[in-house]
Design a protein around this nucleic acid. Sequence first.
DNA 1: CTTGTATTTAGATATTTATCTAATTATCTT
DNA 2: AAGATAATTAGATAAATATCTAAATACAAG
Lengths: 96, 96
Amino acid sequence: MPAQHLFKALADPTRREILRLLREGSLPAGDIAEHFPITRASLSHHFNLLKQAELVRTERRGQHIVYSLNTSVLEDAAGLLMELLRPKSTETTDES
Amino acid sequence: MPAQHLFKALADPTRREILRLLREGSLPAGDIAEHFPITRASLSHHFNLLKQAELVRTERRGQHIVYSLNTSVLEDAAGLLMELLRPKSTETTDES
DNA sequence: CTTGTATTTAGATATTTATCTAATTATCTT
DNA sequence: AAGATAATTAGATAAATATCTAAATACAAG
């Protein structure tokens, strides 16, 4: 689990808002785009970072590309933060 | 709770490593500095961002400034991620 | 097989960020 | 008060990042 990609991806408000939208269910890129004042090209850039962090998955459906949340990676992220909350024992080797 | 500052602060590997050091207990800036290959000035910059996010607190002790972890904010951060994992109901208004 | 729609990629630009060196501030010690 | 030590701030710079427009790719429908 590359913590660096993960936290970098979470650092941007637009990307966090994308994740928030996907909580309710999968959405095609175009539907996501309607919620933001930036271009689709810019959103594609954000999608790339989210995919790199494996926070989202994609599936092509016809001419649409449908994005969905990868909840397990979000759990991992929360877990990484919790690890910072005490027991050095529970340490996992990690280049972050 | 300004999510933006929080996630920005967590996005940098050096800062996460600082937090990891502080898990074991408070440390003066100088002791922290020994763990890193960068200048103390650069570390000061990281300290500023961590303080802005309220992830650390400081206390002057003589000529030393002692840093310690603010665990409750780390818990908040983990909580924000968990909120992304389902119930839109549990939503809290947040400009992030 | 051409036209239209959805999405991404390429390339450019302005802003932000991590880092450095040098200077400053704060405290301690003698 | 003067000098030494700890830490921060100021100012500069190189690298990373978010954004844009324009071009490219992928699929669907006539």
